[in-house]
């Protein structure tokens, strides 16, 4: 399963429809929607949290949350 947690810094991907019900409501509301483009900007020291840009919002989320959000990597 490819999730946001498996992205490399600078890599782009799209959030897939599959994990819709796994995405916490608050993240959905902040723009983390299926089909939205997501970029991993930075990983904090100790490999957690992750700093992402999705749908124009710059967010820091924990790895455990990121691991729930499935993605399709951009080619």
């Amino acid at each position: 399963m490819t999730t946001i947690a498996s992205l490399h810094i600078g890599e782009l991907a799209y959030i897939s429809e599959e994990s819709l019900n796994e995405i916490p409501l608050k993240l959905l509301e902040m723009g983390c929607l299926p089909g939205a483009e997501v970029e991993l900007i930075q990983i904090a020291p100790l490999n957690d949290p992750l700093y992402i840009c999705v749908n124009g919002s710059h967010l820091a989320i924990r790895k455990e949350t990121a691991a729930k959000i499935q993605i399709i990597k951009a080619k």
Binding site: K26, L27, M30, Y51, H58, L59, A60, I61, R62, T65
Partner: peptide
């Protein structure tokens, strides 16, 4: 606990 922080 749910953690999300906007990086303004």
């Amino acid at each position: 606990s749910f953690f999300v922080v906007e990086m303004p």
